[in-house]
Amino acid sequence: MEELVNIFIKGVFIENMIFAYFLGMCSYLAVSKTVETGVGLGAAVIFVLGITVPINYLLENYLLSEGALAWLGESYATIDLSFLSLIMFIAVVASMVQLVEMLVEKFSPQLYSSLGIFLPLIAVNCSILGGALFMQERQYSTIVEATSFALGSGVGWFLAIVGIAAIREKIRYSNVPAPLRGLGITFIITGLMGIGFMCFMGISI
């Protein structure tokens, strides 16, 4: 349990997707003009990460990595399909996003009207594929740990986008030099937020 909380906290604060790895920056910059849309996209990212990473974890451990096919029989035990992992992961992400979109539309129209327009954006959000690739690289020992990592990084991403959206709403009233307006100042503020988040470094529970 302690380990799980630790992985979660690490994903939120220390190895934050935005501030430490810059994953999902494109949609982060494009959709952070108001807090409301920021919350929507952030929630969608948590949701999709929480679904795709465990699926990719199963694929990785029962299909792709070396020796993963051992459950099929002796002769399959030495097969290493890990070079296919990238294609598998992106296919899972793209199809899951599509599936989730259809399911949400069918069963929860209310959620769909608030998340709906963001879901297609998620398929090209690097933080989702990045989550799968980090999961592969860090080799979590159980599926629960992988899920905890996914939710942690999702929440970290959520915090980052809501934070920047709130700051951008405020900054509309300030007199920023014209060439720096919009993109430039957003980059610099994100950098400063990143420096702020760095003070969490080294925390472990």
């Binding site: 060439p179 430039g184 980059f187 994100t190 950098g191």
Partner: peptide, 19 residues
Amino acid sequence: ILPPMALIVVGVIIWVQRS
């Protein structure tokens, strides 16, 4: 070397380019 500086350097490049 730390990650946040990459963002700030890009921000400054954008600033220079647009000026």
